[in-house]
Design a protein around this nucleic acid. Structure first.
Length: 280
DNA sequence: TCCCAGGAAAACA
DNA sequence: TGTTTTCATGGG
């Protein structure tokens, strides 16, 4: 057990905002599985309290403490709505997730509520992962999911997503899709590579690139983000010439700039927690 | 019973 | 090319 004093960090917002699905809160403590470690975290007066054998460097990397939030805020602060979100949810940081786990997590997240997603990931881990503590399991590796018994996979409640998830696992397990290579690709090309997989469209690709590959220029457009843009009539003139939904991602990049991924996450969380907020 | 949820892809017009 | 429907699942 030890403490860190990160600058401008809010643990609750960071773990609750919907980017990760394997952390659960009990009172002031969060418990989660990262890799093959069960980690317990809390925060008091800005200090991060860590119950884990993992190093400070690990958490600094995981929580992106190297991101200069003040300058990111300045860079994305384009209007009253995002201004409110970055004030209210100050300290929310993007997390560096494991690419493989993040890929499967967002594939099985399509058209599902967050509790449903969490349940599916738990079932997958319980069925195909290793138990590292009573009740806590590692995320199954690509080989295991690629060779998974279809009936057992069915019992994880993946629904219509099961075939594409199995296919993706086979592609990663065979080496046909090398996730490590994608780190070196530019956002645009890594995105195209992901979208060649069945079950991965623009939104899922953007989530994986943002949350696992550190592509902060990814701007995932989910149902909440669509509603926000339409409800507040943000930049209506842009959408007169660009009417298809697929251009909302391009809009986000142009509007918020190189750190639009952060903007997206703050807007998304604000909408989930508070709905359409008043700006007066 | 209907509608929506961190959607994608086939079917349709 | 843009719009609608379908696909499982769970919760309100």
């Amino acid at each position: 057990m030890y403490r860190l004093k990160p600058h401008l960090f809010n643990l609750n917002y960071t773990l609750d905002c919907g980017q990760v699905f394997r952390w659960e809160r009990e009172g002031n403590w969060w418990t989660g599985v990262v890799g093959d470690h069960v980690i317990r975290l809390s925060q008091e007066n800005g200090q991060l309290i860590i119950d884990s054998t993992l190093t400070p460097e690990f958490f600094s990397h995981y929580f992106r403490f190297d991101d200069d939030l003040p300058s990111i805020y300045e860079s994305i602060n384009r209007d009253l709505l995002i201004d409110r979100a970055i004030r209210k949810y100050q300290g929310l940081r993007l997390i560096r997730q494991d690419p493989w786990e993040c890929l499967i997590s967002y594939m099985l997240a399509t058209a599902s509520s967050i509790p449903t997603i969490q349940r599916r990931i738990y079932l997958l881990s319980r069925t195909f992962g290793q138990e590292i503590e009573p009740g806590y399991f590692t995320f199954p590796d690509p080989e295991t999911l690629a060779n998974a018994n279809p009936a057992a996979l069915e019992r994880c409640k993946l629904g219509f997503r099961a075939p594409s998830i199995k296919a993706a696992a086979e592609e990663v397990a065979s080496g046909e899709l090398d996730l490590n290579v994608l780190f070196r690709l530019e956002y645009k090309y890594a995105r195209e590579r992901f979208m060649r997989l069945r079950g991965i469209g623009e939104k899922v690709a953007d989530c994986v690139l943002l949350f696992a590959f550190g592509k902060l220029e990814a701007f995932p457009v989910d149902t909440h983000i669509k509603q926000i843009i339409q409800h507040y009539h943000i930049d209506d003139s842009y959408f007169e010439t660009c009417t298809s939904m697929s251009c909302m991602g391009d809009w986000g990049r142009e509007y918020f700039g190189q750190y639009c991924g952060y903007a997206q996450e703050y807007l998304y969380y604000q909408k989930r927690v508070e709905g359409f907020v008043s700006l007066y």
